[in-house]
């Protein structure tokens, strides 16, 4: 049998890769995809605990997380299209119009 801690460790490593991607990349698409990576890490955690605790509640919450991820991707990509139309760039460190 697979210990529960293996799933939790895998999920923690995947979440850390997502955090590093958000903090270090310039391209705004990669930043959004790193957020998706973090959501998937949380999903692995929820499903693993749902299996080991013999309860379906975790799987219900994975459905909600996927719903929120879909809505977030749609709105965020619309915002990216708008920004790149107005500013002509997709790099996060060039959006500095508010900088004093």
């Amino acid at each position: 049998m697979i210990p529960l801690s293996w799933y939790v460790i895998l999920s923690a490593l995947l979440f850390t890769i997502g955090v590093v991607g958000v903090l270090s990349r310039r391209n705004i698409f990669i930043i959004l995809m790193s957020i998706e990576l973090m959501l998937n890490a949380a999903n692995i955690n929820l499903v693993a605990f749902s299996h080991y605790l013999q309860s379906l509640t975790g799987q219900v919450f994975v459905i909600f997380v996927i719903t929120v991820a879909a809505a977030e991707a749609a709105v965020a990509l619309a915002i990216i299209i708008l920004i790149s139309r107005n500013r002509g760039t997709v790099y996060a460190d060039e959006f500095n119009i508010l900088k004093g």
Binding site: I9, L23, Y52
Partner: peptide, 22 residues
Amino acid sequence: GIVIAGEVVLLIARGMFPAETD
């Protein structure tokens, strides 16, 4: 990121999970 990942893996590997059924 490497430091955080190392800490989390160390914490989880040394911790105990009560729900260990398969």
